[in-house]
């Protein structure tokens, strides 16, 4: 399966997980899927066999609420078992909770409180430099998350330490819980902000396009002396018109009817992409 179809297949897994646990953050799960797919299936040197390898690439899901998307990816990658996730997600006593839990294989850091991932990744990237290792460090943040001051403290430090082994991705879906990011707490001109913090900035016009993401990640690898950020312009709820670009779908759990509709839309798109 090509990666563009795979992303739709994984969307279906995420939606299934949400339905099983009657919980989750569907909007951000859908917007971030190509970013995770490209990272886990094309970019990162990471696998269950080398889960403890000190040279493995590091990944932190700073927007930890997109856990269902992450479960889908970790299961497909062989770190976790999808059936176990479906049984346990959000259930009493289960380790499959609504945010990254590093008691589970494949997960480096716990998150859930926004604004932690980037500074943590500065530490990981700095350690790599200290030890002369060539692993890369990737962090995925929400755009609403960027209102946290800690993000910008981390951004400053990353440039200060010339962390060209660090690549941040902003899931720029322009929505957070209360609505449009520009109305809640405006971020534009985001490109200029990161650039003024000393970063190499790549605008990914369609952050739900794996080919475009691929090119951007390759450019990040080539960039020396400074960290790179991808501003990935995505669509929240990507995959079905009933949930696309809707703030109220941030953590809406689909009804039976909505579920059928979403799965049909995702299946159709997956098929289309497989044939393309």
């Amino acid at each position: 399966m090509n990666l563009s179809a795979l992303a739709y297949d994984l969307r279906m897994d995420a939606v299934e997980i949400i339905r099983a646990g009657k919980a989750g953050h569907i909007g951000g799960d859908m917007s971030v899927m190509e970013i995770l797919t490209e990272l886990y299936f094309a970019q990162m040197r990471i696998s269950p066999e080398e889960a403890e390898d000190p040279d493995r690439d590091r990944f932190v899901l700073s927007k930890g609420h997109s856990m269902e998307a992450y479960y889908a990816v970790l299961a497909r990658k062989g770190f976790l078992d999808k059936e176990e996730i479906l049984k346990g997600f959000s259930q009493f006593g289960s380790p499959y909770i609504g945010h990254p839990n590093n008691k589970l294989p494949g997960i480096e850091m716990n998150s859930g409180s926004l604004g932690h991932g980037l500074p943590v990744c500065v530490g990981m990237a700095k350690a790599g430099k200290m030890d002369g290792r060539d692993y890369r460090v990737y962090v995925v943040m929400g755009d609403g998350e960027l209102a946290e001051g800690s993000v910008w403290e981390g951004a400053m430090a990353a440039a200060q330490y010339h962390l060209d082994n660090l690549c941040a991705v902003v899931d720029r879906n322009r929505l957070q819980i209360s609505g449009n990011t520009e109305e809640v707490m405006g971020l534009d001109d985001l490109h200029a902000k990161f650039r003024s913090f000393g970063w190499h900035v790549i605008d990914v016009a369609d952050g739900n396009d794996v080919a475009e993401l691929h090119q951007a990640f390759e450019e990040a690898k080539e960039t020396k002396g400074k960290p790179t950020v991808l501003i990935a312009n995505t669509v929240k709820g990507k995959g079905s018109p009933i949930m696309e670009n809707r703030a109220d779908w941030h953590h809406h759990v689909p009804t039976d009817e909505e579920y059928e509709r979403i799965m049909a839309d995702l299946q159709a798109e997956k098929t289309r992409r497989e044939e393309a």
């Binding site: 998350e145 001051g149 819980i177 209360s178 707490m185």
Partner: peptide, 29 residues
Amino acid sequence: SDSRGSGSFAPFAKDFPEQFVETGIAEQN
């Protein structure tokens, strides 16, 4: 701080926009 929904404060924000401040996801702020 992007918490009007979870805080049940959306009605306040709607009825008293002049007496409401939204900081985005920034609890220190």
